[in-house]
């Protein structure tokens, strides 16, 4: 992956880049945006052509939920990826990945509310109150809402970076809750949720390592967004 610093300007010695030229890595965010909509397009195509198998609602629900979890974990991996691999581009797509995770999670919950449960309020209330697997999914969804609402630069300015950052650590809590949601949902084979638990755990390890290193060398100024 080319980092912006390594991006050559081409064989144009002396060509000064006009100020309105494309920003560094202009392709990155649109590319990730379009790519992240592919799972949705693939679902819509299979739904329209009757290729989702015998239980299409469950299939749609599961795939949307899983895409939400993957994007959420990907957004959490951005800062550790920069620390561990020097991927300076990663933190720049963190907000986008988080919002896409929120988008898929919302569709997942919408399918549950409007199709799976067909707006049966008493059944859904019982689910949230009595099924731990739904309860934790619900809690995760509730946590994701303020994060999505405060994802703008203005919010950071308004709240102050420290407070904003503290709020957005909730994304880790949400991800843990979703992994528990996944664990409690499967009948017996936990290999899939285990994968995401391991990935999350390694992100924590990297974070803890970085934190310890910074404590050891307090003189070193703390690098930007953590």
């Amino acid at each position: 992956m080319a980092t912006p610093a390594a991006r050559p300007l081409g064989a144009q010695p002396g060509a000064t880049r006009p100020a309105r030229s494309t920003p560094p890595d202009a392709w990155l965010k649109p590319g990730i945006f379009v790519g992240s909509l592919v799972p949705l397009a693939y679902l819509v195509w299979r739904a329209a052509t009757n290729r989702l198998g015998a239980n299409p609602i469950a299939e749609i629900e599961n795939e949307l939920g899983l895409a939400g979890l993957i994007l959420l974990v990907a957004s959490l991996a951005c800062s550790p990826a920069r620390r561990a691999f020097g991927w300076t581009w990663a933190p720049r797509v963190r907000r986008e990945l988080g919002l896409l995770a929120f988008f898929y999670a919302s569709l997942h919950v919408a399918v549950y509310i409007f199709i799976d449960q067909a707006l049966n309020v008493s059944a859904m209330t019982a689910d949230v109150l009595k099924r731990p697997f739904i309860t934790v999914g619900f809690a995760a969804m509730v946590l994701l809402i303020p994060l999505a609402l405060t994802s703008t630069k203005q919010s950071i300015r308004r709240m102050g970076f420290k407070r904003w950052q503290r709020l957005h650590y909730l994304a880790y809590v949400a991800a843990i809750l979703v992994v528990i949601h996944f664990f409690w949902r499967v009948k017996i084979d936990v290999s899939q949720p285990l994968i995401y638990a391991y990935v999350l755990a390694s992100l924590f390890v990297i974070r803890a390592g970085v934190w310890l290193l910074q404590k050891r060398r307090p003189a070193r100024p703390v690098a930007g967004a953590g």
Binding site: A2, L28, V34, G35, I70
Partner: peptide, 19 residues
Amino acid sequence: RGAATAAVTGASLVWLSGK
């Protein structure tokens, strides 16, 4: 580069979540 990013992102997501 945008198209390549989209392809890699889309293929990975479908591989992980799609059936």
